Amino acid sequence: MGTARHVKHAVVTGAAGFIGSHLVESLLRQGVTVLGVDRRSPGDNAIAAENLGGVLGHPGFRLVQGDLVTDELKPWVDGADTVFHLAAVPGVRPSWGDTFGEYLACNVLATQRLLNTCVSLGVERLVLASSSSVYGDCTGPLREDGVTAPQSPYGVTKLAAERLALAYALAPDSPISVVALRYFTVYGPRQRPDMAIGRMLRGVLTGTPLHLYGDGHQRRDFTFVADAVAATVAAATAEATAEAVNVGGGDSVSVLDVLRRVGEITGAEVPVLDGAYQPGDVQVTEADLTKARTVLGYRPSVTLTEGIEHHWKWLSARTPTADSPVTVTE
């Protein structure tokens, strides 16, 4: 294993999602054959159709519509040397209350079922999409060996999935190794519409006000999707047995600073409405990337301003403006 690993056939769960679809494209460019798994089908889901539009019909790609919680997984995983597990129910704010059962099933039980299947079939490497939400709040750069204290049900399920995966990798005679990537606020083309930067840019285009939760001084380590994908691909061949690794953008900035940059890039102010603090939202996220450099050779290459510019060009080419008769809702 280790640095001599080569990825030939990979499974990507959550393939029709934001990061997953970018990952599929990257793997196919490198000559990897990919089986994508997603609950959504491009035939009846517009987001899946758009996200996978560039790879549907590619000879190296096959998409199966299925559920990791209930379906038989062996036919999908059989023959894979690497599994990228990105499928999950996302979102801090919606994870409170009656929806938690879905978070538990999709983020924890599905991960355990997938790990069992990988071990039974001798899969060599699983790369898990974890989250900076496993940490909770911080007062300085977050290190992987630091305290994990998630402040939302979502964060709890991501930490549980991560711990499960690492436990499977460390079990005696386990055939599988695991790299869990703690993504910090990934943004860019295809980003979920509920995420901050996309909402700001849509606000400029459509006039839809942004609900600013908190006072705007809360800081986030924003990571452009191309950098997140580069780290994810590197994790497939990194020398590792059971590792959690931060993937950040290299700079923690305030929401007010992001609003300023969006205004400079678009030439228009983002319409803003004050909103109440939301349970589970932390004040600061900031990634220590020392381990990412050592284990993955990872260095973010896209600055926040460059990333917002990429996102703006993509979004402005496909979103109706405030003068359009078509209304875009979130």
Rank of each mutant, 00 (worst) to 15 (best):
P59C: 01
P300K: 10
V270G: 02
T33H: 01
A80N: 03
V326D: 09
P172R: 10
V77W: 10
A228Y: 09
Y168C: 06
Y103R: 01
V134D: 03
F18R: 13
V302K: 06
D257F: 05
V179W: 06
A235H: 10
L63V: 15
S174C: 08
R143Q: 14
Q191C: 13
P94Y: 00
A87P: 12
V282K: 00
C118T: 08
T305Y: 07
F184Q: 02
R293W: 09
A110K: 12
V12H: 10
E306C: 07
L304K: 13
D44G: 15
A287S: 09
D44S: 15
V253G: 00
G43K: 11
T294H: 12
R143S: 14
G43I: 08
V245F: 04
D38M: 12
H9G: 00
E264P: 10
E239Q: 05
G275T: 07
P189H: 12
G14F: 14
A15T: 11
V284F: 01
G79W: 05
L142I: 11
L27N: 03
V258M: 02
Y103C: 01
V108D: 02
G20I: 09
V83D: 03
F61S: 07
L52P: 13
K158N: 08
A46W: 12
L126I: 15
T241L: 04
Q278S: 13
S21R: 13
G53A: 13
G155D: 00
P172T: 15
A160R: 06
E264F: 05
L212R: 01
Q112L: 09
E330P: 02
G267Y: 08
T206M: 05
G250S: 03
Y135F: 15
K8A: 10
V253R: 03
A292I: 02
N246F: 04
T208Y: 05
A167R: 13
T327E: 10
T241G: 02
P42S: 10
A196Q: 04
L256V: 02
S177V: 04
P75M: 00
P193M: 14
Q151P: 04
A238L: 07
F222E: 03
S254H: 00
H85M: 05
L35D: 08
V233E: 09
S316N: 11
V32L: 04
E50M: 08
G216Y: 01
G2H: 00
F84V: 06
E239D: 14
P271N: 07
V262T: 03
A48W: 14
T185A: 05
V37L: 15
F18T: 12
S177G: 15
V326H: 07
T148D: 03
L289I: 04
R143F: 06
A165H: 05
D288V: 03
